[in-house]
Design a protein around this nucleic acid. Structure first.
Lengths: 188, 188
DNA sequence: AACACCATGTAAGCTGTTACATGATTAA
DNA sequence: TTAATCATGTAACAGCTTACATGGTGTT
């Protein structure tokens, strides 16, 4: 049983929303789904090539005004079928690899001041993401028309990101007080 | 700037807790830190070899009674130094890749009954992990003596796992009611 | 006898990132 | 004219999983 690249499916997912160029897909991952997904150019362009060979997508070269030419890809009916099948398969368990947790598993080996820095940095990062997600939800609620069938899913999807980041922020607070407690003890 | 294998560091982390064989490390990841980390035999044994070449760990062959011989590895002082430096580096942002979120980003393409199955399965899985984590905390609180400097960090570390899983469970509930709402609507 | 567990390791091959290379257009 | 953005692509290689291979021990 060979592992299957998830990039294949992420591309099919994006193309099921609308036709895009490879560059667009990279932008899409960075701007729209960065909350839960990412892709590199290397993966996108090479995978696109194999998807064409398999007949799951087609590409059309397009010129818009004076902009550089680009190839816009579309999902084929075969592609939709393959995507549909994958969507129905059980979600495969992802291997956990949380560097933050790994480091704090040996927390006593980290100087207290550095530990505090780690936590504060993580907090900052989570807050930024939380803020971005909340804004995204507001924008969606206002701008996406009710008829768009994806709307409810997009909003609920963002909710997952929000809940998880709130959980991590709460943990940061606990961790922060643990560390501050140790710091003040060490000064006695 | 070359990406650095995190396996290197996870091994150093484990050996900083206590000397272990490669097999022990695999068990350790499966039983103790599966909450936030995983390693395969392939990675462990090959990385162990390079760690020895670099002088970060040493290996001793050991025989216990009639058991098959095994090599128990220890972290060297150089290894501890390298680990210490890594622990002080900022936590590198991990690329998000959440298959569940990706699938539900195109939720309308999934039959409602299948969506429900996905959510119920995820719920079940999170509940199991939550249960395991809570038991682990209880065990630690009872069995790990207060003097062990890691104790507070281990407990707080498990708390992160708990908070995140509770968040995901809460989200599952929201998602479940969204889907059930759509199912009952579709039956009118 | 069979199965589970202890114990180690290698080879193949997929997945993915990074760095590089190219070149056009547009805004400051 | 310089920088940013649009746009595509490749090559090298790091990282990791999977499957395979081997063989001992202990239990049912």
């Amino acid at each position: 049983m060979s592992r299957k690249s998830k990039t294949r499916y992420s591309i099919l997912v994006m193309l099921s929303i609308e036709p895009m160029s490879g560059y667009d897909m990279k932008q899409f991952t960075k701007e729209v789904i960065s909350n839960f997904w990412s892709e590199s150019y290397g993966q996108i362009y090479t995978t696109l090539k194999t998807l064409i060979e398999e007949g799951l997508v087609t590409g059309k070269e397009i010129e818009e005004g004076k902009k550089p030419y680009k190839t816009v890809y579309e999902i084929t009916s075969k592609g939709s079928r393959v995507l549909g099948e994958w969507l129905c398969e059980p979600i495969s368990r992802q291997v956990p690899r949380d560097e933050l947790s790994l480091k704090f598993f040996v927390g006593p080996l980290i100087p207290l001041e550095v530990s505090l820095q780690h936590i504060l940095a993580h907090k900052e990062q989570q807050k930024k993401q939380l803020d971005k997600l909340k804004k995204a939800i507001n924008r969606m609620e206002e701008e996406v028309p009710e008829e768009v069938p994806h709307k409810a899913y997009w909003i609920t999807g963002s909710r997952l990101g929000i809940l998880v980041r709130e959980a991590r922020l709460k943990w940061c607070d606990e961790m922060e007080s643990l560390i501050r407690g140790k710091i003040s003890k060490s000064k006695n």
